[in-house]
């Protein structure tokens, strides 16, 4: 798994490439929580376009991120989920927990 962080109009974009599983989620946790810690009234958006797999430990990392971000007044949302990943979110009703958009433009309304 690889993560790449870029800025977009004062917001943070995290692009993830590869599998998010119990081996890689500790690294993702470190990246995600450090961004969330620094964020204030910002959007932290995660680009799932090149995510190949996510297991429950990966989802738990995002759940932790979501709980943490609520306290900071910022928003966490996802976009570009491949169908196989979307199916995992739908299957476990996590599509109701996270804000999920089709594209980056949809998420920002641009």
């Amino acid at each position: 798994m690889k993560t790449e962080i870029t800025d977009f109009k004062g917001n943070k974009r995290i692009k993830i490439t590869g599998d998010i599983d119990m081996h890689t989620s500790p690294e993702l946790r470190e990246v995600l929580l450090s961004i969330i810690k620094k964020s204030k009234n910002q959007c932290v958006c995660v680009d799932f376009t090149d995510v190949t797999y996510i297991d429950s430990s990966g989802i738990a990392t995002f759940v932790e991120g979501l709980k943490a971000i609520r306290a900071s007044g910022s928003r966490l949302f996802f976009y570009g989920l491949p169908e196989s990943i979307m199916e995992i979110f739908r299957f476990s009703r996590l599509d109701r927990v996270f804000e999920i958009f089709r594209t980056f433009e949809d998420a920002f309304g641009i």
Binding site: S56, I59, A60, T61, F62, V63, E64, K67
Partner: peptide, 10 residues
């Protein structure tokens, strides 16, 4: 709801 590290249960 107070689970550590985002742990959850299906």
């Amino acid at each position: 709801s107070g689970a550590p590290r985002g742990m959850f249960l299906t």
